[in-house]
Structures are given as structure tokens and as C-alpha cells.
């Protein structure tokens, strides 16, 4: 029972972190850049792990986060300098970096249990309790993953609260922001660094491939029914947590993959909100057409 609660708490933090950043990615029409970054941190994680031998070291955190930023630099380079169209630049970048990561895993980390192909796909959310933090020899205060997520949450929360105006302006009207003399490139890379950080700390929990479901789906669900940015962020976090809780319950009940279930539920919530929202809109329209 205690284990379940820690898993749910950790996964909820993953969902909140990803959903908050996902809102800005979505509004800046960079949803797939988020996808690319999450795939691209893989080689960084593998290299850092190979040299540090530890999945939770600071070296790994910094090294892998930088790889994500490199990915977004590479996308910009391919679009602006090599003049390859945007969508293809994203595709080339993420497939290349992910392939490098896979090759490193199959050569350097052959037979390793900490980072294998399954972990890359969907993480090891069920096993996070193996890496416990125990104080004074017997006081168990939760899994390591929870605290790395909490750390990321504070980083993201603080940056978004302090820089709310800047990120909002950047998302709505970048040219206008530059006209005010704001260094939009700097703001852009702060956001990319945060996205990268989130995918790195979430790697162990939900893997590198499925994390994109946490980034995009709850934010998109919230976007369907939000008229204000802060409300959209709040709702995105709620939808994210709902998917985590329902998905986990379903996975345990049906004995299926936990992360897969969470993201599937997230997608189902999206479709339900879409359909209900459409239904209500139709009713409103017909009401205004034939007032009783």
C-alpha cells in the first residue's frame, strides 16, 4: 500500500511537471520539439550513466539535460542554416540522437539491468521503490525518484512563476516581445532546458518514449476548454494527475504495463473532453438559434 502511494505521488509529480511545460510547448506550436527533446536525451543519459555508473547522479542530470538542449539547437541549425523544413528537421534530429542512444545501449551497456530497452520505452515505475532513501537506518522517507521529481518541480515552478509574463508573451507574440527589447532566444532556451530537465528526471519513471504523452496530452485536453492561461495550466496538471491515478488502478487491476495504461487513459480523457465539449457547444448553438 505504502509502495502504491509513493508510486502515485512520484508519477503525479511527473505529470504536473510535464503538463505545466506542455502548455507552453503547445501554445508555441512546439509540441513535437518536446517529443524530439525527450527522445534525444537518451544518448546523454547513456553516456553519463556509463561514466558515473549511477542513475541518479548530478553528472547524469546535467549531462543528459544538455543533450536535450543540443537537440533543440540542432533542430534550429537544420531549419535555419541547412534550410530543411521544420517538421523534417525535428524528425531527423530525434531519430539520429535516439539511434545513437540505442547503439550505445546495445554496445556499452550490453546486458545491463539498470538501463535496457524496456526502460527506454516505458521506464520502471513499478520498481522505483527499490531505490529508497532511508534516514537513521530505519526511517523510510520515500524513493529517490520522488525527490528528483520534487527537485524538478521546484525548478520548474519557480521559473514559471517568476517568468510567467515573459513566457506568456513569448508564446503569444514573439515578434512583439523582441520589439520590446526582450531577448527571446534566452527565454526560449530556458524553456527548452526545463523541458529537457523534465524528460531526464522522468526517464527512470516513465522512459524516454512515453514521456511525450505526459507533456502533450493533458495540456492539449486543458487547451480545449480553457480561456485563460493560468487556468489551462491548472487544468493540465489536474488531467495529468487523473490519468496517473486511473491508469495505475487499471494497470494493477488488469495486470498490464503501468506507464502504457497511464498514457492510454490520458488519451481517452482527451477524446472524452473533446466529445463532451463539442456536445455542449452544439447545445449552446441550438439554444441561441431557437430561444425557447
Amino acid at each position: 500500500m505504502m509502495n502504491d502511494i509513493w508510486i502515485l505521488l512520484t508519477a503525479s509529480l511527473v505529470a504536473i511537471n510535464a503538463a505545466l511545460l506542455g502548455c507552453f510547448l503547445l501554445l508555441r506550436k512546439m509540441a513535437l520539439v518536446g517529443d524530439a527533446i525527450s527522445h534525444a536525451v537518451l544518448p546523454g543519459i547513456v553516456v553519463a550513466y556509463y561514466f558515473s555508473g549511477d542513475k541518479t547522479s548530478l553528472l547524469l542530470l546535467i549531462g543528459a539535460t544538455l543533450t536535450g538542449v543540443v537537440a533543440s539547437l540542432m533542430i534550429d541549425f537544420l531549419t535555419k542554416k541547412a534550410k530543411i523544413q521544420g517538421d523534417a528537421s525535428i524528425g531527423i534530429t530525434y531519430t539520429l540522437l535516439f539511434a545513437v542512444g540505442m547503439i550505445l545501449i546495445s554496445t556499452w551497456l550490453k546486458g545491463n539491468v539498470d538501463i535496457d530497452m524496456d526502460c527506454v520505452l516505458y521506464g520502471e515505475i513499478g520498481l522505483i521503490n527499490l531505490d529508497k532513501i532511508i534516514i537513521d537506518g530505519n526511517l523510510y522517507i520515500g524513493p529517490m525518484a520522488f525527490y528528483t521529481e520534487l527537485f524538478a518541480f521546484f525548478c520548474i515552478g519557480l521559473t514559471l512563476v517568476l517568468g510567467f509574463k515573459g513566457f506568456k508573451l513569448l508564446a503569444f507574440n514573439e515578434d512583439y516581445a523582441r520589439g520590446l527589447g526582450i531577448n527571446t532566444t534566452r527565454w526560449h532556451y530556458v524553456l527548452m532546458t526545463l523541458v529537457s530537465l523534465t524528460t531526464v528526471v522522468s526517464f527512470e519513471v516513465v522512459g524516454a518514449v512515453l514521456v511525450v504523452g505526459f507533456l502533450i496530452i493533458p495540456a492539449a485536453t486543458a487547451q480545449l476548454i480553457s480561456k485563460k492561461l493560468n487556468r489551462m495550466m491548472f487544468l493540465a496538471a489536474i488531467f495529468g494527475i487523473a490519468a496517473v491515478v486511473i491508469g495505475y488502478a487499471l494497470a494493477i487491476w488488469l495486470n498490464v504495463n503501468i506507464t502504457g495504461a497511464m498514457v492510454s487513459v490520458s488519451g481517452i480523457i482527451f477524446m472524452m473532453v473533446l466529445i463532451i465539449d463539442k456536445f455542449f457547444r452544439k447545445q449552446q448553438v441550438s439554444k441561441s438559434l431557437n430561444p425557447a
Partner: peptide
């Protein structure tokens, strides 16, 4: 993109944003 989740007031408030007062 006018689908952005913001009100008239929110957008006009952006006119008060400055490089140093963000």
C-alpha cells in the same frame, strides 16, 4: 494565433511589459 487562452485585458496588459519589469 488568436486561439491563445487570454482575455482582452491580458493582451493589452502586455503593452505594460518592459524588458526590466518582467
Amino acid at each position: 494565433d488568436w486561439d491563445f487562452p487570454a482575455s482582452v485585458y491580458d493582451i493589452v496588459m502586455m503593452g505594460r511589459y518592459r524588458k526590466h519589469n518582467l
